[in-house]
Amino acid sequence: MDTSTILAAADTVSGNLATLGYGLAVIGPGIGLGILIGKTIEGMARQPEVSGQLRTTMFIGIGFVEVLGLLGLITGFLFK
């Protein structure tokens, strides 16, 4: 690949850095959701009789974790 191709690519590939930002923003919540849901499943397998309570608590936790990823989404639109 010679220099002119790279320059041409730099001319045509345009976009917003926020696209990368969202990718970075979901790493944390992704790991968080994985741990959260995995641990809940573990708890349910150990004690199936409290699974209703565990599920409610899991959804509350999901609400808190999920909003972090969604903040990453909307900041991409807000701060251009």
Binding site: E66, V67, L70, L71
Partner: peptide
């Protein structure tokens, strides 16, 4: 924000 961003 959670509700809106999910729907968006």
């Amino acid at each position: 924000i959670r509700l809106m961003a999910n729907m968006v």
